[in-house]
Amino acid sequence: MHFSVRTDIGRKRTFNEDQAAVFVLENGYALAVIADGMGGHRSGDVASEMAVRLMGEHFNDLNAAIPETKETWNEWLDSIVRKVNQLIFEKAQSSPEHEGMGTTLEAAVIAEGNCYIAHVGDSRVYSVSSDTITQLTKDHSYVNALLASGEITEAEAEVHPQRNWIMRAVGSERDIEPEFYHVPLKKEDYLLLCTDGLSNKVEPEMMRELIVADNTLEEKVKQLIDLANERGGEDNITAVLLASNDHGAGAV
């Protein structure tokens, strides 16, 4: 598995509350994690850093007992996300500085041609092939809830003043309900995880065009982030792009 991870502060923010990483086991299984923190007094970056680090630590401890089915991967992801939520919630309660902090979380395990995803918030996971891009996750956002109930249109959602409000975040409540997704990944497919700093600025079809172009993974991710910055860069921008060894050569 080849991958590229990049985060950028953007053009308007004074600090970066996004975090991302990829962790790989000895057997080649990989966990990609991305988190977009929120909260005052710079506590958003504390929440996102904790989420990514703790998910990675639990994944690296899996070598002795690795899940083998969709159900057991979902159970593992559910257990770990809930543990991470509890730790971030307790940290948020521990001092006024961190009160109210939380983070989005996308955790995607890639194992033997399958992708198992735990999702909280409005960061996103996409699968990308040569001719299609598919958003695998559904935003836990106020606007998406309005859209699902038919109260607003897609065009209205794109410009809604509350489009950045999220309905679910890791660490903001004592309990959390992650959503889970499972998709097969073909050898020629890419997997993209990104924060809304990218998805709010670059439409899916443009993402697909840049991803399937003849470049290394590092170049593809840099182009995605550069384009989001060119289009305003009001938010932090983070992307993780993964590919099979077949077409990820040269990228790490």
Rank of each mutant, 00 (worst) to 15 (best):
A148K: 08
L105N: 05
N60I: 06
K222W: 00
L242F: 03
A32V: 03
L217Y: 09
A32I: 07
P178C: 10
E177V: 14
S48I: 06
R42M: 09
L77Y: 12
E151D: 12
S79K: 13
M206V: 15
E49D: 07
A20M: 08
Q135A: 09
E179H: 08
A20R: 01
G233Q: 00
D196Y: 14
K70F: 01
A21H: 07
K12Q: 02
V84T: 10
N236L: 14
M1V: 02
T69V: 05
N74V: 09
A157G: 03
A249Y: 11
R82C: 12
R174F: 02
D8V: 01
D36H: 13
A169Q: 10
R168E: 05
V202Q: 05
T69K: 03
A21N: 12
I166W: 05
G28D: 09
G40K: 04
R168G: 04
Y116S: 10
R231L: 13
V46Y: 01
G102F: 13
A118K: 00
E68I: 12
E177P: 01
A21W: 10
N16E: 05
T103H: 14
Q162K: 12
V221F: 07
H41Q: 12
H119R: 08
N164G: 02
E26V: 03
K201G: 11
L31D: 01
G250L: 09
L242A: 04
A243Q: 00
G37S: 10
L185T: 08
E203T: 11
A249C: 02
T72S: 15
T104P: 06
G40V: 10
V212S: 05
A213C: 14
G250A: 03
E99R: 04
G56P: 14
F15I: 04
G44D: 09
I80M: 04
K187E: 11
M38W: 11
F89D: 04
A169E: 15
L210C: 09
G197M: 00
V212N: 00
L242M: 15
Q162V: 03
S79M: 13
V24M: 14
R82S: 12
G102N: 06
I225H: 05
D196N: 10
A111Q: 05
N229C: 14
E209G: 07
G56A: 09
A251M: 03
S48G: 08
T195C: 15
W73T: 07
A111E: 01
I9R: 12
K186R: 08
E75A: 15
H41D: 03
S172D: 07
A148G: 09
L192M: 13
E218V: 05
Y29Q: 03
D189L: 10
A108H: 01
A148S: 07
V170A: 06
N164P: 03
S123F: 09
I211N: 00
I211A: 07
D246W: 13
L146R: 00
L25K: 10
G37A: 12
E26P: 03
Y126E: 10
V33N: 01
S244I: 01
D139E: 13
P184D: 03
A65S: 09
E205W: 12
G44M: 14
Q223T: 06
S48R: 08
N85A: 09
I225N: 02
A30K: 12
L105Q: 06
D36M: 15
R208A: 14
R11Y: 01
V46R: 00
L185V: 08
W165F: 14
N245D: 13
V120Y: 02
E106M: 09
V22Q: 06
N16T: 11
N245V: 02
L192Q: 13
L193F: 04
